[in-house]
Write a protein that binds this DNA or RNA. Structure first.
Lengths: 223, 223
DNA sequence: GTCCGATTTAATTAAATGATTAAATCGACC
DNA sequence: GGTCGATTTAATCATTTAATTAAATCGGAC
């Protein structure tokens, strides 16, 4: 009947038979899952945001579950490798601190909802933590952790012996560093409310952090 | 038909006409919401865990929404006031650091899922952040933040002038301190996977943190 | 014994939601 | 021109889930 209107011509709808469609769906799902969580997200919202119909989502991903896993994997791959790479590298310890701070804060500023999403997902699916690390690094999760710890421990011990650093367990070192970088984004809504920030205010806050965090952290390492 | 079995006699079901039932439901909801998130939780699971029937949940809370709000409020009241109280008190700055670390780590050790739950909820309902702070403190969220900042700033400035402390914005100070305390619990699943901890291992990790965190932090504050 | 709130039983409703299908269309490539 | 994969349309199915009701029960207070 009234199927006329503007159905047929799809000017906003790029024909896109190029193979980007799967990506479009992934992107839309990413956005929706990010702001609603996997459980709270509705596939309908995703298809709408992607500009496709439910049949197409089914065509590519079959179920919401699989789509969620794909999105989660992609998100994690976007966040983990950088830190792991830096911490496990053979750069000087002080270099690592500076690099982690810069890399993380810069990246997270662009995707401020990532930490909340990832932590939230892991809280409800702890089993994914292991799978995730394996998928990203290609080794057993505990192994990559152990490797990083070993590298850090060696560097720390050398400095402690030289009287240049206060002793600290490498695990505590890593968690402290990560906490400082990630937490502000994970707690963003609360911080914005309590500190009276708007988006710009938050960005300024992070900007300052980017300058002062590494020095702050390095001061804590002094003997 | 087969309604016989053991329906009628309720030995496991304490009669509890005392008024604790509402609490029982709240507790059950708390547990379920905590491990599944509000969106992922099913009221059925809650009633089951509370040992009551759906009608009773409806009798007390009407909807899942209201129940969720009640649980969230209660959870937040369990977490916020302590820190706010300490930071806004007139104790010495070094005292505050020590007290926050001790209070938070001790409390969170007993309720390790709280941070994940709260951060997750706030990520999906940012508007609650404000309401929440108001409800807990009885003042505008930005105001309590400003008050804390003011107190801290005065203490920091005094120490900076005395050459005993490196300058730092009070907001950065507070966020750093909170991050160190809260993050390990929020990221617990991931840390356990990567560091190869089991529950006991995690507890040991936190135990060590309880001893070393305040000194670490105070070192970072030195000039 | 009766009244009353707490609680249960049992069912039902209404809506949302995810999954799935069949058939048509469209564009590209051969 | 025909084939093929991508995509749409439209519709339906099955299930879950929250919400809700009416009526019965139960225990204690009065």
């Amino acid at each position: 009947m009234i199927k006329s209107t503007s159905q047929r011509k799809g000017p906003p709808r790029p024909p896109a038979p190029d193979g980007q469609t799967e990506q479009r769906i992934l992107d839309a799902a990413h956005a929706v899952f990010m702001r609603s969580g996997t459980a709270g997200a509705r596939t309908q919202e995703i298809t709408k945001e992607a500009g496709v119909n439910p049949a197409l989502l089914h065509y590519y991903f079959r179920t919401k579950e699989r789509l969620a896993e794909a999105v989660f994997r992609r998100a994690a791959c976007q966040l983990l490798p950088a830190v792991i790479g830096i911490l496990a590298s053979d750069a000087e310890l002080e270099e690592k601190v500076e690099q982690v701070v810069q890399t993380e804060l810069q990246h997270l500023s662009k995707t401020p909802y990532l930490p909340g999403y990832i932590l939230s997902e892991l809280a409800h699916h702890p089993e994914r933590a292991g799978q995730l690390v394996s998928a990203v690094t290609g080794m057993v999760p505990a192994e990559i952790g152990a490797r990083i710890s070993a590298v850090l421990r060696k560097q720390i011990n050398a400095r402690v012996r030289a009287g240049r650093m206060h002793p600290i367990e490498p695990e505590q070192f890593a968690v402290n560093l990560l906490a400082m970088c990630v937490f502000p984004f994970a707690a963003r809504p609360m911080l914005m409310a309590m500190l009276g920030f708007d988006k710009a205010g938050f960005d300024t806050f992070i900007e300052r952090r980017r300058r002062e965090l590494a020095p702050f952290f390095l001061r804590a390492l002094r003997p």
